[in-house]
Design a protein around this nucleic acid. Structure first.
Lengths: 327, 327
DNA sequence: GTGAAAGCGCTAACAC
DNA sequence: GTGTTAGCGCTTTCAC
């Protein structure tokens, strides 16, 4: 260890060391304006030698770029911030931000118009909206194009990064059908969530095409709601022989509820989840589920916002069926 | 919704609205210099009316305070960033940061001297070190006092925020002893982790005081390591009648390993965990564990760093025994 | 008690 | 191709 607090190196120091003006140094480093190869070389060398790192605050101040990525989580309660799914997104974003020398802050998004306030905040470099609704996206100011991305559905102004949960649902339904299940109930996420409606649609399509009854009991992704939905499904349709839940938490809650009622899994009722969390493989029976590449999705979305590149309107990530004992 | 992109409100706007100078407005809002009660009232009212939020970039620039809180996670691989425990800390910090208008970035801390680089980075407002070792803390520059906190052990320069895992271990040991267990093995965290050594010490004290054999097989908090440690413990001490793990993940891994070997839980071997994660209550058998107020701890540590208040050298949070079926 | 003014480090017009 | 200059929004002396 040498100096405990290294002297801060500014652009002025670099310029002086390279024998040029500050503006030239900025151009050389930024690579935008005109600059002689020689000057560029000298500046680059000086910057490297002095271990120059630009002051992000000054940069943010002058060009209003902002210095934090906000992860805005839509949902009905502030508790959505503690959701494991949201945490994985925030964690991935925080790792991406570290590389850019900025940070991520997380906040609950009770309604779309809160996004407008963020747009007016100069400290905000960009926004990642988690689980947005059409209303939330409709509130996105046009000026935010390129500085916002959605994990969930998108809109013309907001590129979407999401798992292909319609396909995942279809694959899961076919798997259950192939293994002889016919009275299959779906426990999707809350009905206000567009991706939950996507799963319902995929489920309906398969069931109707097979001439089977449609049975949907919405949950909210939580363990508790999985138990409640299971109770409700069994009450309404006692002959149910399979339960497809849109989260592993709900599926695990469903298994617990079935066991409490003396039903065998998968003997009496097959149960499938979604996410492939670590404990899916530890449950008894081990849980059949579909993978959900949350970190990949969040990293891509954060990178797209921070790099400000043009992004396709929708990027879909595949989900893989993982067969275990519960089906 | 009115204007799509609200005009940014600056201190100048507030000052003008309140009919005072910018300096007075700053003093009134900051509450430091001299300021007449009347001016203060007018300024406060104007700020509220205009929904003024200070530009953190400008503030960071002028007083060099930085605009991100870095969560530095010590560990042997970058994978520690994806650990559920680290994610909960980052998530809590991100929520605290949102209130302050700044962000959090997360990075792996392979060695203590990486902290020195952070100290030289003016964009860094403060640091939260997760699971530090004595070596890591020894590398903390003195100038960082008040801008750094540890979740785990501390040092004279770094205040510590941590759960009382010595006490938690002792309480758990007494519980097992009281329920008749005598051949109790401990599966603590990795031996480089000071808090793991604390648990071991508490465990030894109880065992030695009771004249019982000391049996320790370290793990790394993961499900896998819980299984490996269990196999190792059963091989070395086949008469083991209880396993105390320092994480619920390891305990769940231990239960799975025991079941694979045909051992009953808790009939043959009692198993206890630590953390009280959601799935502890869903496992079969449901898992006896001890609570770990991670969010409370992380929020307190982040707040202490961001507020820059004087902090006691060590703040300890209690853990509660949660009795379930596995013991 | 209050205002004027300097300056944090950087970018971007604008002259030369 | 390069240097000069004017701010970005805020804090903080220093006069008054």
């Amino acid at each position: 260890m040498t100096a405990s607090v290294p002297q801060r190196v500014t652009l002025d120091d670099v310029a002086r060391a390279a024998g040029v003006s500050r503006a030239t140094a900025a151009r050389a480093l930024g690579g935008y304006g005109a600059c002689s190869p020689d000057a560029r070389r000298r500046v680059t060398a000086a910057a490297a030698r002095l271990a120059y790192t630009p002051n992000a605050a000054a940069r943010a101040l002058v060009n209003g770029a902002g210095f934090r990525l906000v992860v805005a989580v839509a949902g009905s309660t502030p508790g959505v911030l503690a959701d494991p799914y949201a945490l994985r997104v925030v964690g991935s974003a925080a790792a991406v931000c570290a590389v850019h020398g900025i940070g991520v802050s997380a906040q609950w998004l009770p309604a779309g118009d809160h996004l407008v306030a963020l747009a007016g905040d100069r400290s905000v470099r960009g926004v990642l909206v988690l689980n947005p609704t059409e209303q939330v996206l409709a509130a996105v100011p046009a000026a935010w194009r390129g500085r916002i991305a959605a994990i969930g559905i998108g809109s013309p102004a907001v590129p979407s990064f999401d798992v292909d949960n319609a396909d995942a649902t279809t694959v899961m339904m076919r798997h259950l059908y192939a293994s002889g299940r016919r009275r299959i109930a779906l426990v999707p996420g809350p009905s206000w969530l567009p991706c939950a409606r996507r799963s319902v649609r995929a489920y309906r399509d398969v069931m109707l095409a097979a001439g089977l009854p449609v049975r949907v009991v919405p949950g909210d992704f939580s363990v508790t709601s999985g138990g409640v939905a299971t109770a409700s499904a069994l009450r309404r349709w006692p002959d149910t022989d399979a339960l497809v839940a849109s989260s592993d938490a709900m599926a695990l809650g469903a298994i617990a509820a079935l066991h409490r009622r003396g039903r065998q899994v998968p003997g009496d009722v097959a149960v499938a989840g979604f996410d492939d969390i670590e404990f899916a493989a530890l449950a008894s029976p081990t849980l059949t589920t579909a993978s959900h590449p949350v970190e990949t999705i969040a990293t891509a979305a954060a990178t797209a916002v921070l790099d400000g590149r043009r992004t396709p309107p929708v990027t879909t990530y595949p989900s893989t069926l993982i067969r275990r004992e519960s089906t």
